[in-house]
Design a protein around this nucleic acid. Structure first.
Lengths: 341, 341
DNA sequence: ACTTAGCACTCAAAGAGATTGAGTGCTAAC
DNA sequence: GTTAGCACTCAATCTCTTTGAGTGCTAAGT
């Protein structure tokens, strides 16, 4: 693959990203020093090799996903952020935050507004946190509320209804049992094994209290897998997409969960044809992980059309995730201090 | 307004509801015993009077909102529900529910699926409920969780961050204070007056604890005004609407809150031209209130195109709200029993 | 052997009639 | 007051033409 071809491919992608129209040979002349005829010949070859395609014979060229792949992996030059831009981005993040979930949610929203794309954030910090309080509160006939608070400030509650009322003694037992066996336990250590051992240890109380335990387990599972989608509106108004596809995508959150998996290892750019089962044609997904105290804690992702402005938006995304990492790690230090006191 | 005119108007609306196309004089002949020419003359008059309109000279007639108004108020015959249909509707409702919010939410979703419209539910039952527990739980440096549980099973929590840590004594004071002054208080009695009197009564503690109180008040306000929208997808796919209007409607929840107000007094059918400020052109909104123990407790609403199948859907809606009323009232009795014990 | 000017060719998009048909209003007869 | 009949209207659809951006190929130029 000679140098001029790469330059032409780059020019096609660059042009197409801004115009959204098929790019002709003349438009490339301002980027590459060669006549339109030469460029046409080169483009014909790029097409043979699968990097470009024509919507129809007499139209210009459009990058294929293979073309985008080469572009983002090797050709594109990212626009580095100026200090001013950094300040602007900082201004979009909250200075302070109450819970980590709050922070990532706000960052996600800001990114969505900035890029006019949808954003998604998978936050697995709760997984690394420890249970700091579990309480069971009776609230009516056979009704109980389970309250769980984790060290990262996340709170979760669940109402459950039992078959019969618990005696005072049973409640007290459960309370103590939880205090001894769950308080201070990292959520990620709550394997099914661990749980079943616990239930066994409850002995005669097991029968009556097991519904509570199973709700508790459900809660921990829900905590460590939270995926939030923002900027749905931007997908709906983007004319690169098929509306019905977007609607069915928004309708099944399940898919979201699935695709974000395995994107926790560095910047990642994926195209819909590469990700099979993903319904939105012509879309690309860019993800960047963030960490808490050196440990991967989640990922922020951008869902947009394939002709998204990679050069500009990738730096935005990476800056946001690095800021998130800083902020939540710093906060973590504080609460460590707290423990030492 | 003579009888035949009314029959013709009814026929036009009925036809238009199923076809969505302007209705011509011939189509009416199967409903009204008269020649197409006569019907045309009558329709011309109905148009003069503002009940019908023509998209263009050589097209059939379409009802105006004034036509719909007359139709729903006086002409339409509702399809009464058969026992079988009632059973089907019952099957869509949960047999049992944990919180009232759960129930109305599920009913709302079921109605949305059934009618392919959006549904909205304003639930003010929390307002009539009493505070059964308030707790403040420290969860980290200067971090506190306020937990509030109301008698109808609703739970709300809020994380707040204070400027300084509270002493054990301060916490205990707040705990007692809340127990004495808020536990058992109906939410609707928490007027601003009442609150400010309370804060004054806190004396020297006021300064330090007022952030907690203000969060608490916020929580009660959020509790008694919950509006839930379901079936957004149906609005997006309905071709009677302008997509951009739908998107901007979905984007500002505020509007939702506003329009549902004042619809708690019996079945209500509104058309977008009557409800100014409401962005969705060509839409109609049908609401029906539900009650808890004889007291209005909220309303369930249906948002659809103006040519919605009123005859069929109004009975659905009313059946649902009557079932909701039954179910939450019955449940209430149970918890009353509970108190007596 | 590569580059490029030139030319014939292609094809989507936009515009200009022409055609169709559902529906109307009006009139004159019943 | 009702209705059959007829001329008229107009959106929708189709066809035909024009336009123009863009191509591939060829032959001459470097």
């Amino acid at each position: 693959m000679d140098d001029r071809k790469l330059k032409i491919l780059t020019a096609v992608v660059d042009e197409y990203i801004v115009s959204g129209e098929p790019v002709g040979s003349k438009a490339i002349m301002s980027h590459v020093k060669a006549s339109s005829a030469t460029i046409r010949n080169e483009m014909a070859e790029l097409e043979k090799q699968g990097y470009l395609e024509q919507p129809h014979t007499s139209a210009g060229r459009v990058p294929t996903y293979k073309g985008y792949r080469l572009y983002v992996d090797r050709l594109m030059e990212q626009d580095p952020l100026s200090e001013d831009e950094k300040k602007e981005l900082d201004a979009m993040l909250p200075e302070d935050f109450v819970t980590e979930k709050d922070l990532v949610e706000k960052a996600s929203l800001a990114l969505a507004e900035l890029t006019k794309c949808a954003t998604v954030v998978a936050n697995s910090t709760p997984k690394f946190s420890i249970i700091s309080k579990v309480e069971v509160i009776p609230t009516g006939k056979r009704m109980y509320v389970i309250l769980m608070i984790t060290s990262n400030g996340e709170i979760k509650n669940k109402v459950c209804r039992l078959e019969f009322d618990l005696t005072h003694e049973q409640l007290e037992f459960f309370d103590n049992f939880v205090k001894q066996n769950l308080n201070g336990v990292p959520l990620e250590e709550l394997s099914d094994d661990y749980i079943s051992k616990l239930t066994e240890a409850m002995g005669t109380y097991m029968m009556t209290l097991s519904p509570l335990v199973s709700e508790l387990v459900k809660m921990t599972k829900e905590l460590d897998r939270s995926v939030i989608l923002k900027g749905q509106k931007n997908l709906l108004t983007c004319k690169d997409f098929d509306q019905t596809e977007i609607i069915s995508f928004l309708d099944n959150e399940k898919e979201l969960m699935d695709f974000i998996d395995g994107t926790f290892s560095g910047l990642n750019v994926m195209f819909s044809p590469e990700k099979d089962g993903f319904v939105i044609h012509n879309s690309s997904i860019i993800t960047s992980p963030f960490s808490k105290g050196g440990r991967t804690a989640g990922a922020l992702g951008l869902i947009g059309p394939m002709r998204i402005d990679y050069a500009k938006f990738i730096p935005y995304l990476e800056y946001f995730t690095s800021r998130i990492s800083d902020m939540i790690s710093q906060r973590d230090d504080v609460s460590d201090d707290d423990k030492e006191l």
